[in-house]
Design a protein around this nucleic acid. Structure first.
Lengths: 198, 198
DNA sequence: CTTGTTTTATGATTTTAATCATAAAATGGA
DNA sequence: TCCATTTTATGATTAAAATCATAAAACAAG
């Protein structure tokens, strides 16, 4: 999102998070702007009986956790490293100073938030009113456009586990497995040794 | 959100929308920034079998429909006047010019988008993993904080119909009615001649 | 290479909200 | 004021996804 050297000019420091390590927790008050150098971070909630809902998955060059930072509100979800990752941390005050002094960055932040809001709007409508096949397909098609899925001779490889798809769509693993099978039967996607292609 | 005189300085014009009139439709390409002078506008989707999902309800001084405007993407939902309303329309080019020349407004836009993203995040987690009582209560408590619910001697009057609560939470009217009854029995809210108080 | 964990898989059963049916009360236009 | 529509309401039934149980395949860590 923001150029690394610009962030460092304002005092951002790199921090390493091992796989499964927590970056911040639900309920914490935000203190920093976070931007991934490399790796993969997920933001998720756990409900009363430990069921997970994944708010989003973020990859290199992407930022996360800004909304509560701007609002002085508690984090609504946890951020956890899905794999070994390096993240740039910039203290809030320095970040706000950076924004003030670089107006082009504000537009970038706006576009980024707008993009995430757009995704949430589309998925919210899907999750509330559509059946599993529709929901899973929408998530996959969104993933192709915005996550880093790679294309090969079989099509786009959907690099999510069935559990992750479930946690992103609010469905159970078994339902996702059965739904993906049904979608394959309909010919809208392929399963080649357990991997899903679209 | 943005001062009316500033908007008008950049060429914004007022437009009247009668109750139930459409402001814009899902699939349209955005051309203007919209800000409500007075009235009430809802944004919502209809799924394949005409079931509605309300993305949000907006009141005076609030703006709506910005995300796709910034992204040059189609509107993901319809905007309809819930009651007679007056809306300020500013063409996209003028709006972007306004933003460039008034950096403080960018921060306001960021905060507004952050707020809406925060709401969507919380509701998405609720809708995917929580039971009806939890979902309805979360919506009501959010409404108290961010919609214009009025407080009197009985508590906050929840000025949503049961149908609207259903369309905002992804539940059916009958389920909402039964859920509200159950919540009343538990003492977490009151029903005084069919009106809900919290 | 072995072992523990995660991922994918399938069948049977249960639960819960949706659906269907019906109606009284309230509201809003004409 | 009357009539059509919307809102709230309740009971019975159904459908669909969750849950439960179990296991093979794949993967990761030591």
């Amino acid at each position: 999102m923001i150029a690394i050297d610009l962030l460092e000019k304002y005092g951002a420091l790199k921090k390493f998070f091992a796989k499964n390590e927590t970056v911040f927790e639900e309920g914490n008050i935000p203190t920093h702007y976070y931007q991934i150098v490399y790796g993969e971070i997920k933001m998720s909630n756990y409900n009363d009986d430990a069921r997970e809902f994944i708010q989003g998955i973020f990859y290199k060059e992407q930022s996360f956790g800004e909304p509560p930072l701007f609002l002085n509100q508690k984090y609504p979800a946890n951020a956890i490293a899905v794999e070994d990752s390096e993240v740039l941390l910039l203290p809030k005050d320095s970040f706000m100073k950076l924004l003030e002094e670089n107006s082009a960055i504000s537009i970038k932040i706006i576009e980024n938030l707008a993009q995430r809001l757009y995704y949430k709007s589309v998925m919210a409508a899907e999750m509330s009113t559509q059946e599993p096949e529709h929901r899973v397909l929408k998530l996959i098609d969104h993933g192709i456009a915005y996550f880093n899925f790679k294309k090969d001779e079989n099509g786009y490889l959907i690099s999510f586990t069935r559990q992750q798809i479930g946690d992103l769509t609010g469905l159970r693993v078994e339902t996702v497995i059965r739904t993906i099978k049904a979608l394959e039967k309909k010919g809208v996607l392929k399963i080649i040794n357990r991997k899903v292609y679209r």
